[in-house]
Design a protein around this nucleic acid. Structure first.
Lengths: 143, 143
DNA sequence: ATTGCAAATGCAAATATATTGCAAGCATGG
DNA sequence: CCATGCTTGCAATATATTTGCATTTGCAAT
């Protein structure tokens, strides 16, 4: 009877080890994880890969997790709790990822503009910064 | 002797059909294309898939194209010309993509902040909006 | 124009990532 | 505790991306 049982039940879903586990794992980390990362962090017995994908897809449709695209070969996921709004910085050199919380998000104006111009109703957005971390800058001769 | 021959030579690379083609194709479209899309737009004889991938990787490291992550299973690419700065709106319902140019990008302040807090030097960023396009809103009963 | 060499390409095979069908197992309501 | 339907594991499949290697091409120096 995990911490998220209630949440899942309220949404008409059964609470299972796979689902509880994913939610717990994603809450414990500050950077988004790939399906593989997630599976590896499960204690034995690890759920099947297919189960991880199916549950990520379900939790995502319930809005409990959210996918983050960092220009890699695979997607990553993060917990999508209320009011949590994170952006990220990704190092092009070593792939290191830092997450940071933004105090105010300046993008509300743009979203209204999009509604006006395209009729699109924006539900969320994704903002990532790319560059070089201190270590990689050092290696490359401090640009 | 294509339009991009000079650019490539200046960067110490040979100008080939594959590279010229990719740059031309990406300039002709307003939305980012997948490697598959790109290959399909080549006139016969189409280059091999591996060639497309290798060239995208090269052009990307030269900064002539840039990858765009839209939470799909594959990456997309767009031309990365000087001063060109695009954002996108993606419909979660049908996958439709619209691109729009921003006049001023409000993010310079954040980038400075990142430099201060993490020592990361930001070279670029990626901003995408997700939501429902007019058609999908209609189908779903206008939310 | 011809030639030599490094770099680019095609092709096939290997990996990595993601999805699906189906039989067996588990969660929940009665 | 039992029946039911949703979940899971497993194997097979689909899709995306990468790699090795032999061949061809681009291009600079004849």
């Amino acid at each position: 009877m995990g911490k998220h049982t209630e949440t899942l039940r309220r949404m008409g879903r059964t609470s299972t080890r796979g689902r509880e586990g994913i939610l717990r794992i994603l809450e414990e980390t500050s950077i988004p994880l790939s399906p593989k990362d997630i599976r590896e962090r499960f204690p034995e017995p690890k759920p099947d890969t297919a189960t991880v994908y199916r549950n990520l897809s379900l939790l995502s449709s319930l809005g409990l997790v959210r996918s983050v695209a960092l220009h890699e070969r695979c997607r990553r996921y993060e917990a999508a709790g209320e009011g949590i709004h994170r952006h990220r910085v990704v190092c092009r050199g070593c792939g290191r990822i830092e997450a940071f919380q933004v105090t105010t998000c300046h993008l509300a104006g743009i979203e209204a503009d999009i509604r006006r111009r395209f009729g699109f109703k924006v539900t969320d957005h994704s903002l990532e910064f790319f560059g070089s971390c201190p270590e990689c800058r050092k290696k490359e001769g401090a640009k």
